[in-house]
Amino acid sequence: MIELRGVTKAWPGGAGVQALDLSVPEGECCALIGPSGCGKTTTLRLVNRLVEPDAGSIRIGGADALKQDPVHLRRGIGYVIQEGGLFPHRRIGANVATVPALLGWNAARTRARVEEVLTLVGLDPARYRDRWPHQLSGGERQRVGVARALAADPPVLLLDEPFGAVDPLRRAQLQAEVLSLLKHLRKTVLLVTHDVQEAVRLGDSVALMRGGRLVQHAAPAEMLAHPADGFVAEFLGADRALTRLGLFRIRDVPRDAATVAGEALPEATTLRDALSAMLERGVRAVPVTEGGALTLEAVLRSR
């Protein structure tokens, strides 16, 4: 787990972080959001000590991060930045093997692990290992970035706007895949994003920052339903109620037994998409593939 207590960092120009308390339980993903200059990236970089705090304590997995050698600390934390930050002069295999090489793993162990993590992120090792970063698409580079961060199997990962450079069509799928992988591997993740939709979709909790302070830290559905103040409400957007419906699926709410005409929706459909279907069809209920019907009243009661 990651635990920041009273962490303060002042920059000469302002825009640091002030007396920040934030904890991310083991195996969970916390999404840091906020307007630019709110201190979210500084917060992320404080965890692996790319930024040194002026005051406060930082604990990772129970150990005091500020008492460790920063270089050693960073080798134990996965780090993914926008576009992956791959080394353009190294092949994919060598890129992925970066931290194992720093840790002095032998060739056989490194090679096996490179194959393993490339497979995990959905890239065929035989096809990708010997390619150069510039031969890959933005999404593929991002997958390699994640594979590289996972190579030495760190318990904690820091992701800094990891999906920013991926084309919008592929982004949602890549996000879902990467996060379900990290969840499956029980990684503790701190994710920085400026995209509200991304934050609520990926985070077990969302931490909203403003001017170096944490304004609200809550589960996404909770924050969308009960913004702490006007700023949070405005930042989440006027469509926050719709965003919130996007977090629930038809299977999460009670269904009506009545038979309804029209094309049926699978129960994995989000309530947001189901509501959109009702608006499009001008109806108050839609049939569900697995049986029964979803009514407008059930959607309204979900809040």
Binding site: N48, L50, L73, G76, I81, Q82, G85, L86, F87, L102
Partner: peptide, 23 residues
């Protein structure tokens, strides 16, 4: 030198000398 690569090198635990010589 590509800032993203240098930033990644630091963040993954290269020493300053390793980053200079290898990246």
């Amino acid at each position: 030198a590509e800032p993203a690569a240098v930033e990644a090198a630091r963040g993954m635990g290269f020493t300053p000398l390793q980053s200079l010589l290898r990246v």
